[in-house]
Simulated scan of single mutants.
Amino acid sequence: MTAGPGTPGGAGPGPEDEWSRIVSDLEDVRRAGDRHLTGPRDWSPGDAAPGGPSAGAETAEDPGGAEDDDTPYSPDPGPVTQGLSGGALLSWTVLVGVPVLLVVLSLLPGSLPWWAIVTGLVAVVGAIGHLLRSLPEDRDDLDDGARV
């Protein structure tokens, strides 16, 4: 019985050799695809040319893109998503919390004191006033409000 390709003692390349070739090709493609995520200081123009001086020749001293390959891209959150100011957070909490508190207290047995209702209404009106006052004032007449 003769040994065929892929068996021990066979003449052709084995599945392990083929697998390692496929994996190395995929790593080269991945490095080339992630090059756009690194800044201009991380790679030189010679890296972009196929067969250039550093094509496929990464060393331990030159990290290239090997260390950056596993780090996920996280964009700058920008001014919109950095959170609310303390006053705006307090105003929204009062605007939502006081009516809910008044409804829960009114469901309890007994009557709700008049000063609790007045205090709640004043707090809600103050919160609405604060939120309206904190709106931006520099709006163009032709602006439809969309931001890019």
Rank of each mutant, 00 (worst) to 15 (best):
V148R: 13
P75D: 05
E58Y: 12
G10E: 05
D25E: 13
P45I: 01
P72F: 13
P45R: 03
R30K: 10
S111L: 09
P5C: 11
A57P: 01
D69Q: 13
G12P: 01
G120F: 06
G12R: 09
P63R: 14
V23F: 06
G46I: 01
G10L: 06
H130G: 04
L135W: 06
S134V: 12
R35C: 00
P13Y: 08
M1F: 06
S54M: 02
L135E: 11
V80A: 13
P50M: 03
V23G: 03
V104P: 00
R139D: 08
V104S: 09
G56H: 11
L105P: 00
P99K: 06
L132P: 00
E58F: 02
I22K: 12
G129Y: 12
G83W: 09
P15I: 02
G86A: 14
S44W: 06
G83R: 11
S91P: 00
G14E: 14
E67N: 05
P75M: 07
A3V: 15
A32V: 04
P113R: 05
P5A: 11
R31S: 04
P113A: 08
P79W: 15
G97K: 02
T2D: 13
W115M: 01
T59Q: 09
D25N: 12
T93D: 08
S111F: 08
G46P: 00
P136D: 14
V125P: 00
V80E: 10
S85G: 15
A32D: 12
V100W: 10
W92I: 01
P99H: 05
P5R: 11
T38E: 03
R147L: 13
A66F: 09
D42W: 02
S44M: 05
G97T: 04
R41F: 03
H130M: 03
G51C: 05
T59L: 08
M1Y: 15
G145D: 01
E58L: 10
D141C: 01
S134G: 12
R35Q: 07
G14Q: 12
G97I: 05
V103I: 11
T38D: 02
